[in-house]
Design a binder for these strands. Structure first.
Lengths: 209, 209
DNA sequence: CTCCTTGCTGACAATAGTGTCAGTAATTAG
DNA sequence: CTAATTACTGACACTATTGTCAGCAAGGAG
C-alpha cells in the first residue's frame, strides 16, 4: 500500500556526489549523542536516508567514518576562524573582543561542541586524532594569542607577567562556558553575552597595564 | 601444573566486604578509558579479579555499577573539598590561592578527572547523573565563591563588576587546565605550578580593586 | 527503445557483549 | 569432624552490531 503504482517514484535515487556529506552530517549527530562505541552504523544510515551497506561503500569502516567526521569538523573550525581573526590595527581590547566573540559563536555551534566532546571522550582511544587537533588548531590559536599579547606589550597596553607566558589561559573561560552549556545547559543556562562580557572584563583587567 | 596439590590454595576466597570497592575501582578505570558504552563487564571483572557473574551479584547491571562509580567519585570530591576550604580570616588573595591549589590538586587526581570525562561524554545519556553533579558539587562551589567575593567587596579588596555576578568564571582556568592535561597531556605538558600562578595572577588583577 | 554501467540494497555470517542460573566449593556453625 | 550456608563461578541463551556480497534497478549511452 505504499505506492499506488510500483513503477513510479523509484525506491532510491543515485546521488553519488551528495552522499558523503549527508552521511558525515548524520554521523556527527550520532557520534555526538552516543560517542564512538555507542554509535550505531544502522542509526547513522537511517539518519542519512540510506541503507547500512551504503555507508561501507563510502567509508571503509566505522573508524574511517569517525575520522572523516572529525576531520570535517576541524576543517570547518579553522575555516571559520581564519576568516575573521586577522590582526588588524585595532587596540588589544578590541582585538580580543572580536576574537572572543568569534570563539563563543564558533564553540556553541553544534558542530564544534560535538568535536570538543568527541575529543574529550574518545581521545584516549584515538591518539592520532588528538595529535591532529593539537597541531592544526591549538598551536595556531596559541601563536595568534602570543602575537596579540606581544603587540599589546610593545604598545604599553599589556603588562608583562606570568599570564603572558601561558596565553592559552585567556580563552579558558570560553572553553569553560562551552563545556558548561554542553553538560549543564538543560539545567542552568548561562547567558552568553553576560558571560562573554565578564570574560573580557576579567582578561583586560587581568593583563592590562 | 598450576598447583601441585589441588586441594591446597583455593581457587577463590570469599571477601564479601571488600568486593564492592575493588569492583568500583576497576570499573572506574574501565569507564575512564572506554566510556560507558565501550566499557566491558568482562574487562572490569578481570581487573577486579573476579568472574563476570560476580559483578551482577553486587550490582544490578552495567548502569547501576556506573552510577555507583560516579557516586563514589563525587563523594570523594566533596569529602576532599569540604576539608580545606572553610573560609577563615585570610585575605581574599590567600583564600583564593588556597582554594585554587586545592582545586588543582583534586582535579588532576585520576579519580576526579575520570569523573569529569565521564560527565562530559555520558551526560546526554545520563541526565540524572548530570543533575546530581550539578546540585551536589556545582552549586556548593558557586555559593562558596560568592561568599568569598562578597566578603572581598565588603573589605574593599574586590571591585564590584560583571565578574562578581558570575563567580564560576574564576575557576575556569583550572578546569581548562584539567581538560587540557586530560586530552593533550601526552603531547604537551603545561606545568601545574606555573599555570596555577598565572591563574591566580589573572584573577587577582582581574577582580582586584 | 534497449543495453550497459554502477549506485544501492537486503540478506547473511560472524563476533562481542549483556544478563541469568544451577551448581560448586569456601567458610562458618555446631 | 560434619553439616549448613552462601560467595562465587562456568556455561547458556539472547540480543545488538559490524562488515560482506551477490544481485537488483536507476539512469545514462547508443
Amino acid at each position: 500500500m505504499k505506492t499506488t503504482a510500483p513503477s513510479d517514484s523509484p525506491a532510491y535515487r543515485r546521488r553519488k556526489a551528495d552522499r558523503p556529506d549527508e552521511i558525515i552530517a548524520a554521523a556527527l549527530r550520532e557520534f555526538h549523542d552516543r560517542g564512538f562505541a555507542g554509535a550505531s552504523m544502522a542509526r547513522i544510515a537511517k539518519g542519512a536516508g540510506v541503507s547500512r551497506a551504503t555507508l561501507y561503500l563510502y567509508f571503509e569502516n566505522k573508524e574511517a567514518l569517525f575520522l572523516a567526521v572529525a576531520g570535517e569538523a576541524m576543517a570547518g573550525f579553522t575555516r571559520a576562524a581564519s576568516q575573521k581573526i586577522e590582526i588588524g590595527d585595532h587596540s588589544t581590547e578590541e582585538t580580543l573582543r572580536a576574537l572572543f566573540r568569534q570563539f563563543y559563536r564558533t564553540m556553541t555551534s553544534t558542530k564544534n561542541s560535538a568535536l570538543l566532546r568527541i575529543l574529550i571522550s574518545e581521545g584516549p582511544a584515538m591518539p592520532h586524532l588528538v595529535e591532529a587537533y593539537h597541531s592544526q588548531i591549538l598551536t595556531t590559536g596559541r601563536t595568534l594569542l602570543e602575537r596579540i599579547i606581544a603587540r599589546g606589550i610593545a604598545r604599553g597596553e599589556v603588562r608583562p607577567g606570568p599570564v603572558a607566558s601561558i596565553p592559552q589561559i585567556l580563552i579558558a573561560p570560553a572553553m569553560f562556558y562551552a563545556i558548561h552549556s554542553m553538560v549543564f545547559g538543560a539545567l542552568e543556562n548561562l547567558d552568553e553575552d553576560t558571560f562573554a562580557e565578564a570574560h573580557l572584563d576579567l582578561v583586560m583587567r587581568g593583563i592590562g597595564a
